[in-house]
Nucleic acid binder design. Structure first.
Lengths: 319, 319
DNA sequence: GTGAAAGCGCTAACAT
DNA sequence: ATGTTAGCGCTTTCAC
């Protein structure tokens, strides 16, 4: 090295360490000329924590999760945390990727729009790796943490809005039938309708993707009697549904068929869609996630954070 | 441990190591009951390579890069490589994030739709970390590798297509003026037009985002004489431009105004847009990237890989 | 085919 | 405020 001991170098790169300005400058100067950078892998080894959070992203088509990733990256880079990212689209469970992430000794796991088998989830807990679910809830609640939008309230408000606009035969397009998100939205939607004396809505499954939503919408519009409005479990499917109604069935959106989504995702506000929806505030939700993740040792936060959104009425449900 | 030495355990988890089936089974069995997983951080320390590739994503709004990330993740998880991901939207350079990535001893760097200051780029080379540019080209070509779509050929074909459809006053909407991608598309577009005796196209800058594209489109459509067709530097801006023309200016897309994009990104084929574009085959481009990244020590690949696309004519330029 | 010992680059406790 | 020493969990010669 250039003049000092190994330990001094370590201290020079540790923010609150006891070191004199003089030696600190010497070390930093030498580092600059040598192109030296502390090896954080080695630091992780001894410190027992890596500064890395594992992220598994289950749905990349939906721009909502991308903006969430974006917000997450911004917050993490401020906190000097890194993200080890996987996208696990097709797979039902994120297990495979999580197995790898665990080997890299991630400090925590964030599951966005995906779930974990309960076996592996328990293993994570045993190893002491906290697991946070984003926009999804774990099957068993024991000791896992989740951050979601307000699915129940949102679905309720959409239902109320549809009835108030004069729609009498609302239908529901589900996402992935096994996802907690879709189920919660469906249940609350149906509950409100029946409480108002409206018959149980027709349901088709769109699998949260475009092709599924297109097929599901065709099936819904060919039913007899035809639904006069559709609540789709997310905006992404709603946009596909809207195009089917407009371009394949020649329906006037709003007056002849009402369409609502969920999330107020990028695209919903575009003129081509002008989609009624219930917002899921990304920034707020990500803040809740990072609050949990960055205070890893502490666990004072409530197990399930539900972030309220707001009804965003637009042209797609205007009669 | 459960019966054997430390070295044996290591060999049990190293695919091609010399170990008997019997001890291997013993070790794996013990590992399972203990919940043991090899610590890849420690392995990285001694092996001198981490198995991690640093990815900096410069444009998350454009779904093209998301699908690229998706494809990348799929290929990497097969090769048991990890991705340390940052999104660096606002920033002109990815330097800040790269600095952090270097400390984690990433084996390679992938810059998607973003660039690096030449100072840091040189440092990467000095440390022996290969830098791959995706959909962007480095300023200085020395020893850096890039994978791009065929910007020149694509822009040329778009220009030819517009003229052939009978448009006589094409304009260009640039992305980020400093990005190589936008510049290449503009240059080739202009070159073809002038070679055909058409006056130099009007140009406005849309900054690759929706707000910028909306403003740029308004400016273009208020020019006198008004352009009769617009080539936008990517699909994402083209979709915004199309909505401005259709909903704000009441123009019939295709007959009254031609609009073309670049990339054949998600959304371009939707009925609402039906956008003429030149494709950038994600899978092929990502394959080129992974070929380079996964053969790290070797460097036989050409420095700049250009992946051909194909003209996708759609309704937005049909007169 | 297996075990012993050394060392990857760092931090932490202790001594100075 | 600084240097010394030990050790984080692994892979790797080198014996056996």
């Amino acid at each position: 090295v250039a003049g000092v001991s190994q330990a001094a170098v370590s201290r020079a790169f540790t923010p609150g360490a006891s070191i004199s300005k003089a030696t600190q400058d010497k070390v930093v100067g030498a580092a600059k000329t040598l192109g030296y950078r502390p090896n954080l892998l080695a630091r992780s080894l001894i410190m027992g924590q890596s500064g890395i959070v594992g992220v598994v992203l289950g749905d990349t088509r939906n721009p909502y999760f991308i903006s969430a990733l974006d917000a997450l990256s911004a917050r993490f880079s401020k906190a000097r945390k890194q993200m080890l990212v996987f996208t696990a689209v097709g797979a039902a469970y994120a297990d495979l990727h999580v197995e790898d992430l665990l080997r890299y000794r991630v400090d925590a796991l964030l599951l966005m729009a995906t779930a974990l088998s309960s076996k592996l989830a328990e293993q994570c807990r045993d190893v002491g790796v906290p697991v946070v679910y984003f926009a999804r809830r774990p099957q068993r609640t024991n000791g896992f943490v989740s951050v979601t939008g307000n699915n129940k309230e949102g679905a309720r408000q959409i239902a109320a809005h549809l009835l108030q606009q004069g729609y009498r035969r609302p239908a529901f397009m589900a996402g992935l039938p096994e996802s907690s998100t879709s189920r919660e939205r469906e249940t609350a939607f149906t509950a409100y309708l029946t409480s108002e004396g409206v018959p149980k809505p027709e349901v088709e499954v769109g699998n949260y993707n475009r092709e599924g939503a297109t097929l599901a919408m065709r099936r819904l519009l060919m039913r007899d009697p035809r639904p006069d409005s559709i609540f789709c479990a997310n905006d992404y499917m709603a946009m596909a549904a809207l195009e089917v109604a407009r371009y394949e069935f020649g329906l006037k959106i709003g007056s002849e068929i009402g369409i609502a989504g969920f999330g107020d995702t990028a695209g919903a506000s575009w003129r081509s869609f002008d989609l009624t929806t219930y917002s899921q505030p990304v920034e707020e939700m990500i803040e809740a996630v990072t609050d949990i993740l960055l205070s890893v040792p502490v666990r004072t936060k409530p197990a399930h954070t539900v972030v309220d959104g707001v009804l965003v009425p637009r042209g797609s449900t205007r009669r």
